[in-house]
């Protein structure tokens, strides 16, 4: 049934356009084109960015982050990120209850932070947004998924990494994978993203070139949810007054690790 509507619908558009050219010919103008010289140059440029250019990019990021109240902080190594997070957990109070808990992605970079151990002194549990039970993974309403959902809702800090960070508008780019739930960067009051220095790229042009033409990125594609995050949630719907934390996080911290390992 849906298919016949589809054909009728597209047919009506075709008629409205009254096109002289063949469909295939027009398709070929838009899709499955070979890489352009421009995109090739962009990819080369990303690969061969000099340390000075990288430093420049980081400065652009810092400047772009200021007006949108995004906290971008460069730290020398993993252990200094851990202590920064420990400090945040100590200073910040939860929004809905009194019990503090934290939820984090299952991600190699986050794993190296050893958060569970670091936060155990404050008696703050660290949940990992990962389904462990293979059999239940496909079931639509598994108990494990329900439990994880509740843990994310209960947590007041969500810790993620990101695929990229675009400097020109201070934008985190995050794709969704098993263990890397999208709600971790959305439901908790505070979002912390931990990235490496070399994940910073310039802008959308570079991102789209990577997604389309870099073999590794192209293989994975955009996933079923790719999200750009530029700063904390905000609204200006009451007398145009800007307020943070409309529905998403009220504060966002990006820790950029600058070590080379």
């Amino acid at each position: 049934m849906a298919t016949s509507k589809h054909a009728e619908f597209i047919g009506r558009i075709k008629k409205a356009l009254g096109h002289p050219k063949e469909d295939d010919q027009r398709m070929a103008e838009f899709f499955n084109l070979p890489i352009s010289e421009n995109d090739r140059t962009i990819l080369e440029h990303i690969k061969n960015r000099t340390p000075e250019e990288k430093q420049k990019l980081f400065e652009v990021l810092i400047e772009a982050a200021k007006p949108i109240n995004l906290n971008v902080i460069a730290l020398p190594d993993v252990s200094s990120v851990t202590s920064a997070i420990v400090d945040l957990v100590e200073q910040k109070e939860p929004e809905w209850g009194s019990k503090k808990s934290v939820v984090a992605w299952n991600h190699p970079l986050i794993e190296r932070l050893n958060l569970e151990e670091a936060l155990s002194q404050q008696d703050v549990p660290v949940y990992v947004a990962e389904l462990k039970n293979e059999e239940e993974q496909s079931s639509s309403s598994s108990d494990e998924r329900k439990r994880l959902r509740q843990q994310i809702i209960d947590s007041y800090i969500g810790i993620t990494s990101a695929d990229f960070c675009m400097a020109d508008a201070a934008t985190l780019v995050m794709r969704t994978r098993p263990g890397q739930a999208r709600s971790v960067s959305l439901v908790p009051l505070i979002h912390i993203a931990v990235i490496r220095y070399d994940q910073i790229i310039a802008d959308l042009k570079e991102l789209y070139a990577l997604l389309k033409w870099d073999p590794e990125n192209h293989k994975e594609g955009l996933t079923n949810c790719m999200t750009f995050i530029s700063g904390p949630s905000k609204t200006a719907d009451i007398e145009a007054n800007m307020v943070h934390g409309a529905h998403g996080p009220r504060e966002v911290y990006v820790y950029v690790i600058s070590d080379k390992d």
Binding site: L131, Q137, R145, R149, I152, R177, P178, L222, N224, T227
Partner: peptide, 13 residues
Amino acid sequence: SYIGGPRYPGQAD
């Protein structure tokens, strides 16, 4: 957000 399709097996949300 770029949204394409439902949750895959293994994804939490």
